[in-house]
Design a protein around this nucleic acid. Structure first.
Lengths: 233, 233
DNA sequence: TTCTACTCTCGAACACTGTTCGCGTCAAGT
DNA sequence: ACTTGACGCGAACAGTGTTCGAGAGTAGAA
């Protein structure tokens, strides 16, 4: 029972009025929803709503939610610049690249979660990052095989770290609740039986959100120091 | 409109006939479903079906699906034995502990995925493992702070590795398809433009499922070598 | 200009999820 | 023997990703 539009009012010509739907615009909208409302809010319906349309419309430009996720990740990774390898400070460059990856993922809370849902990322910027990492590691004197394995481990750790970090700042608790939760954590650990948990007892203070960066730096430093040892054999 | 049971047939007295519902039995059933049919099959309905009941019945013993996930993880971690620290071979002990964690998670494909959904694991066996790791690292001469950070990194990497490994053997493709996918991978990488991806081009062969164990060993060796370097300062 | 062909849009529906409500039934306590 | 309280669970709700097919709009051909 649809009624034709009244002839005295010019037809709104919606098609031209609102920006055309495209893969890029869908990805952009999805990222906006992700940034504003978090991972759980990124549903096909919510994205469609953002574009003032229905969920079915998205499937003309994106075949899957998984594919959309891949596109989102790639769009985010595009912000990372890859350096020219400098053999004199290759280790610092590797660290920098990992830091950049994590920072970019932190800028879009929840993208790390999405990254885990993608089995093998073969998008353009993923490949670019992979190649750049390999080049740096080779500049450090590692064989291709060693570089491959090291790059895999670094990528894995970066994703894991970013995911955990996004959990801290976007679990289900908002910023205010996070601090409270942290203190509860410390208190709980202190309450453990001392004879069974002599070490864990005092760990609470090292585990706050403030030490997150420090934990990252430690892991990077240790791993790269190890790489230098292995490279000499 | 329920009809009373016919009097000539003795009422089945179901309540006593089938094993009583309990938290432990629910966790057991959930793990069976996970092992047999994978992560996606672990739904409240499927678990209930396994126990010959309805989904609502589970909520009397388990408040959440998240809580159930935590219980499942803890049940799996129970299989890991924690060693007495031996300062002479602490590094080998750390490796062994990480390997055990990964192996146990590989035994229940998909449990790694569940592990990521748990923000901060504070179940009994998680704590036991954490304490054991700290003890080993301290035996290696690390300060408590260093040990905490190192343990965090190792736990993160173990979870990440286990998750990726479970993806290879249980993505959406079954065993036969996995090999095919792997070869497609190699072929695709070979087809990349050589001037832009001189290193990635030759990486395919190192990335098969067969080298998974080798990658793990490399990462462990590098990280622990790095820890030894850092411990001396 | 008129008709056709084709692409894009999108309301409605399907099968599925986790979770809650509340009725009924059962087993033990008084 | 009767009450009581806890547990089992059918049905329903709100939400998910995805598909179908009719409709609208545009562009090209006759």
């Amino acid at each position: 029972m649809t009624v034709p539009p009244p002839p005295w009012r010019s037809a709104p010509r919606r098609r031209a009025a609102k920006p055309v739907l495209s893969q890029a615009s869908i990805v952009r909208a999805a990222l906006i929803v992700l940034d504003d409302e978090g991972f759980d809010a990124v549903t096909m319906r919510r994205i469609a709503q953002e574009l003032e349309t229905g969920p079915a419309s998205l499937y003309a430009h994106v075949s899957n939610k998984d594919e959309l996720a891949e596109l989102m990740l790639d769009a985010v990774l595009a912000d990372i610049q890859t350096p020219e390898p400098d053999p004199a400070r290759w280790d610092e460059q590797v660290k920098e690249l990992v830091r950049d990856q994590i920072q970019v993922m932190a800028a879009h809370r929840g993208i790390a979660r999405i990254a885990w849902d993608i089995p093998v990322p073969v998008t353009p910027h993923s490949l670019r990052l992979g190649e750049a990492t390999l080049a740096l590691l080779r500049a450090g004197g590692l064989t291709l095989k060693q570089a491959t394995f090291a790059g895999d481990a670094l990528a894995l750790y970066a994703k894991a770290y970013a995911y955990e970090a996004s959990g801290w700042t976007w679990g289900e608790f908002d910023q205010a609740e996070a601090g409270e939760r942290g203190e509860q954590m410390v208190a709980y650990m202190r309450s453990l039986p001392p004879e069974a948990f002599p070490n864990l007892l005092h760990v609470g203070e090292f585990f706050s959100a403030e030490t997150a960066k420090e934990r990252l730096e430690f892991a990077l430093e240790a791993f790269l120091a190890g790489l230098k040892v292995l490279a000499k054999n």
